[in-house]
């Protein structure tokens, strides 16, 4: 039910217009960080205020919203944002990737390939990939303007010199459409290849830093690397312990204090769908997990 005191999707229409303009500009210049007048949201910075504003601005009454946090539909952040839009916009929500038209995410891209017409909204803490190398905003803007990105490779050089390989595993820098260096937000580098030529529109919102950027559908997204140290995604030794999936991103779950652990899909929807279809991992419970109560929230 929509609370009467709120405009549709919480933000007022003028604010949404302003944010939509920023989004349109971001789409027109893939990877470029567009400043916008970020609003105070009824949640703390760091909880996805940027993503929420983007979602609020693009949401329509017919949209179906999915919210994930670290791949999971049922962690605090995901649940509270989903409830927020249920309350303020009254839109339908889902946990199924294929059914969603708008997916707001923190730190993951769903395993199920996204389709044309879907929009993926990222919550971004620090939009500037050069921030920890060059603290001056004036200088980083100039570096973007002149496409001076040698410094980013210095960071990767340092990784190899220190660890023997590129040890950056998340927020792995990418070049968008051969022009702008972009921070893909703290997604694992495992997800970087999914951004490349994705059929879905990808929008990034950083609330505290007041920046919006975008990767339009079918845009080239290339992870930086060296000729003799090419980009590689994380690999996992074993399949998911619950659904037996391989080639997906796994979370390590500590089971006891004697070194017991299991690796399970970080994408809960993907895992549940597979289990419902009868796939079983080594530690799956004998009773079918199937359609649990999760989807009913």
């Amino acid at each position: 039910m929509t609370a009467a005191a709120y405009n549709f999707a919480y933000l007022d229409e003028q604010t949404k217009r302003m944010i939509r303009r920023a989004i349109l500009k971001a789409i027109a210049i893939p990877g470029y960080q567009v400043p916008f007048a970020s609003r105070e949201m009824p949640m703390p910075y760091g909880w996805g205020t940027g993503g929420v504003q983007v979602t609020a601005s693009i949401l329509g009454r017919d949209d179906v919203l999915k919210v994930i946090d670290q791949g999971s539909d049922d962690t605090t952040n995901a649940v509270s944002i989903r409830k927020f839009f249920q309350k303020t916009a009254g839109v339908a929500t889902t946990t199924a990737t294929a059914e969603a038209t708008v997916i707001q995410t923190r730190h993951r891209i769903p395993e199920t390939p996204l389709q044309a017409g879907q929009v993926l909204v990222y919550q971004v803490p620090i939009p500037e990939p050069l921030r920890f190398l060059e603290p001056r905003e004036t200088e980083t803007r100039k570096m973007h303007a002149l496409a001076e990105y040698g410094l980013m490779h210095v960071k990767l050089y340092e990784d190899i010199a220190r660890h023997g390989h590129i040890a950056t595993t998340y927020a792995y820098p990418v070049m968008v459409a051969g022009r702008y260096l972009m921070d893909p937000s703290p997604t694992p580098k495992f997800d970087n290849p999914k951004m490349h030529r994705s059929a879905a529109l990808q929008l990034f919102g950083a609330g505290r830093e007041k920046r919006i950027y975008a990767v339009p559908p079918h845009t080239e997204v290339v992870s930086l690397d060296f000729e003799d140290h090419p980009f590689e995604v994380n690999r996992f030794e074993q399949p998911c312990a619950l659904c037996g999936a391989e080639g997906v991103y796994l979370d390590e779950v500590v089971l006891d204090d004697r070194g017991g652990r299991m690796f399970v899909c970080s994408d809960t929807d993907h895992c549940e769908t597979r289990q419902a279809a009868g796939h079983r991992g080594t530690m799956a419970s004998p009773i079918a997990a199937g359609e649990g109560g999760r989807r009913a929230d």
């Binding site: 410094l151 490779h153 210095v154 050089y157 340092e158 010199a161 060296f226 000729e227 140290h229």
Partner: peptide, 26 residues
């Protein structure tokens, strides 16, 4: 750059002009 190794400091200019081969930079 005080927080970056000597090798990275020397290599920065090379990377800035487009060198992308770790072994050669080193």
């Amino acid at each position: 750059r005080m927080g970056i190794s000597a090798g990275g400091n020397v290599g920065e200019r090379l990377m800035a002009v487009g060198e992308r081969h770790y072994g050669r930079i080193r």
